[in-house]
Design a protein around this nucleic acid. Structure first.
Lengths: 119, 119
DNA sequence: GCTCCAGATCGACGTTCATCAATCTACATA
DNA sequence: TATGTAGATTGATGAACGTCGATCTGGAGC
C-alpha cells in the first residue's frame, strides 16, 4: 500500500453548479484505517475465517495437529495461514513441547467489531 | 481459491499418544465462510475502509465527485474500489444523471458484525 | 550421541491485487 | 448535432497472495 492516505480534502470542485452537500471528511484516520484493514484482510480468506471460528468455539487452546486435518491443505499452508492471523493479532500461540497450540486473542476481534458498530 | 473446503475431518492422527481433546469441527460451513470472507476481504484495504466510513457517517448518498478528492488516488482507482465494495454488497449506488451517488448497504456490515459477535 | 516427529521456514509457481494512463459511455447543454 | 463533463472500463505493470514440496529447527526418546 504505497498510497499517501493523508486525507486533507483537495476541494477542487465544480465547474458549473454543485452536485451535493459540502464535503465529507473521513473520521477514521490513516493509522486506525491501516490497523482495521489489517485485521479485515487477515479475515478475508475462507480458510483463515474457519480457523478463527474453530479456535474461538473451542474454549482454550487447540493443537495444530488438530487443525491441519480439517482442511484439504498441506501443513505448511495451514501454518502460513496461522502466521497471518498471528501477525494481525487475532490469534496467539504457545509451544510447550513438541506440539504447538493456538488460541483466539479476543481483543483484536472486539476492536474490529467495535469499529463495525459505527463510531 | 481452488481449495476444496469440504470440512469433513480427516481424523488420521496420533502415532504415539494424543496431544489434545477429541476433534474440533468448524461450525462455519463452506458457503458462509466464503460469504463472510468476501465481506472481510472487501474491507481489507485502508482506502475501502475509509470509503465505507465516509459513506456510513454521511446519512444518505454521497457523490463520487466528493469521494475522489479525499484520496491521493486517480479517479479510476477510486472507482475500482467502489466497485469492489459494491460487489461485496457493502455499498449500493445510483446514477440519476451525470453524477453517481453511493451509499452504505447496512445489511452486509450487520451480517458480518453478527458473525464477529460469536455465534 | 543419534533418530524421529511436529511445526516453522524457504523457494518457486501461478493467480490475484492496486494502481495508473488512456479510452469509452452517457448525460447535459449549447 | 457537436462539445464538454462524470464516471466506468480497459490494458499494462509491479507487488502481494495462496499453495506446494523440500528443508530447517528443536524437543523427545532411545
Amino acid at each position: 500500500m504505497n498510497v499517501d492516505l493523508e486525507l486533507e480534502p483537495k476541494t477542487k470542485r465544480l465547474p458549473g453548479e454543485p452536485c451535493c452537500e459540502p464535503v465529507v471528511y473521513p473520521d477514521v484516520e490513516r493509522q486506525q484505517a491501516q490497523r482495521m484493514a489489517k485485521i479485515a484482510k487477515a479475515l478475508g480468506d475462507p480458510v483463515r475465517l474457519q480457523l478463527v471460528d474453530v479456535l474461538r468455539k473451542h474454549a482454550g487452546k487447540v493443537c495444530v495437529c488438530e487443525l491441519v486435518p480439517l482442511f484439504d491443505l498441506s501443513q505448511p499452508t495451514v501454518s502460513h495461514h496461522l502466521k497471518k492471523l498471528k501477525d494481525a493479532g487475532i490469534v496467539g500461540s504457545e509451544r510447550p513441547g513438541l506440539w504447538a497450540y493456538y488460541y483466539v486473542n479476543p481483543e483484536a476481534l472486539e476492536e474490529f467489531s467495535r469499529w463495525l458498530s459505527l463510531a
